[in-house]
């Protein structure tokens, strides 16, 4: 019987290489700064507008991932990226500049995982040899999209999160030994618990993360202890706390190996309130810190659980609740068998 939303990739597609770019503030403040491939002196990458800079972040991240595997864009079969700007123009312009067949994906901040799941499906079905998946966000462009002008003085509460300027891309292809491979995944359902505060997205997203985690564990017959880490995307300190409480309530007493990329991103710096958010946040952490720890063998099996708040400025102003989604993907590092 097919379990709804639960996917197993029998061919185990590989993640060959990753590329992560980040803005100047992230380079200075992020605890993962050392692991990013490239950072910029200027938050717009010396281009005229924030959206141009946003595009450049994504473009460079893809090229870095390709150059690590010594691939040219002409050899890539699919590009699957997304971001949070209206109609995803930064991704669209990136796709035009790279001239790779392209599907734009929107799962808000969960795009990093939803693009990987789609890439793994394409690779598993042998429709493609090389696929690039990724997502990005740029602080100024996204703040403008969802909230107030960047320089507007509004007091943010302790639950507010800071949209990161970062992009992450991963080159995914057929199974190869010695690389982290994608085992299985779970596509989440939209969960809406009636939260309405756009400055408290962590608590809106936590139930979605908890729902997908439970589906993944039961669907694949796994327990929390099977993973070296279960890392959520951008719940922030408040959302992460609630997520762990929900996990406890669902009969998962141990949450020691849980991590949250959003909470860790700026090293719990109080000036960033509850932590980082944005579709670049989960992508940057998954494709730098987590990927490198898989390569070095520190992690054998991880569960990436990216969460996204599927709201628009229009929907919350019209008084709608914030629907949220979470997607899970399981990566393993196989022991290299000596030839």
């Amino acid at each position: 019987m097919v379990k709804r939303g639960v996917l197993t990739f029998h061919s185990k597609p590989s993640i060959y290489a990753t590329g992560v770019t980040a803005g100047p503030l992230e380079n200075k403040k992020s605890v993962f700064a050392q692991q990013f491939d490239k950072s910029y002196e200027d938050e717009r990458c010396d281009l005229p507008t924030n959206e141009d800079g946003h595009k450049q972040l994504m473009y460079d991240a893809v090229l870095i991932a390709l150059s690590k595997a010594k691939k040219q864009p002409e050899k890539i079969d699919f590009l699957l990226t997304g971001d949070l700007v209206n109609q995803m123009t930064p991704s669209n312009f990136t796709a035009h500049a790279l001239a790779i067949p392209y599907i734009g994906l929107f799962s808000a901040c969960a795009t990093s995982v939803s693009s990987m799941i789609t890439a793994a499906l394409l690779a598993d079905a042998k429709h493609a040899n090389w696929i690039v998946a990724g997502s990005s966000s740029q602080h100024n462009a996204i703040e403008r999209q969802f909230r107030y002008p960047v320089e507007y003085g509004s007091q943010k509460g302790a639950t507010a999160q800071w949209t990161v300027t970062a992009a992450g891309a991963a080159l995914i292809g057929q199974h190869t030994q010695g690389t982290p491979v994608i085992d299985c995944a779970t596509v989440g359902k939209v969960v809406d618990m009636g939260m309405t505060d756009p400055l408290n997205m962590g608590s809106a997203m936590a139930p979605a993360a908890s729902d997908t985690l439970m589906n993944h564990l039961t669907g694949h017959g796994k327990t929390v202890d099977d993973y070296d880490t279960i890392i959520t995307g951008d719940l922030g300190s408040n959302g992460f706390k609630i997520f762990k409480a929900l996990a406890n309530e669902n009969g998962l007493p141990h949450t020691k190996n849980f991590r949250d990329a959003g909470e860790e991103f700026y090293g719990n710096d109080p000036s960033f309130k509850a932590g980082a958010s944005g579709s670049g946040c989960s992508a940057a952490v998954f494709f730098s810190d987590v990927y490198q720890k898989l390569l070095t063998g520190e992690y054998k099996r991880v569960l990436l659980l990216a969460t996204g708040a599927l709201l628009s400025p229009l929907s919350f102003q019209q008084g709608d609740t914030i629907p949220c989604i979470a997607h899970a993907i399981e990566l393993t590092m196989e022991e290299v068998t000596a030839p």
């Binding site: 509460g157 302790a158 618990m193 408290n200 936590a206 139930p207 408040n238 929900l246």
Partner: peptide, 17 residues
């Protein structure tokens, strides 16, 4: 889980302004 029940949990755990 019910929305009301979640709202209660959320209120308990979220920091008060």
């Amino acid at each position: 889980m019910q929305q009301e029940k979640y709202a209660q949990i959320e209120k308990e755990l979220s920091p008060k302004p």
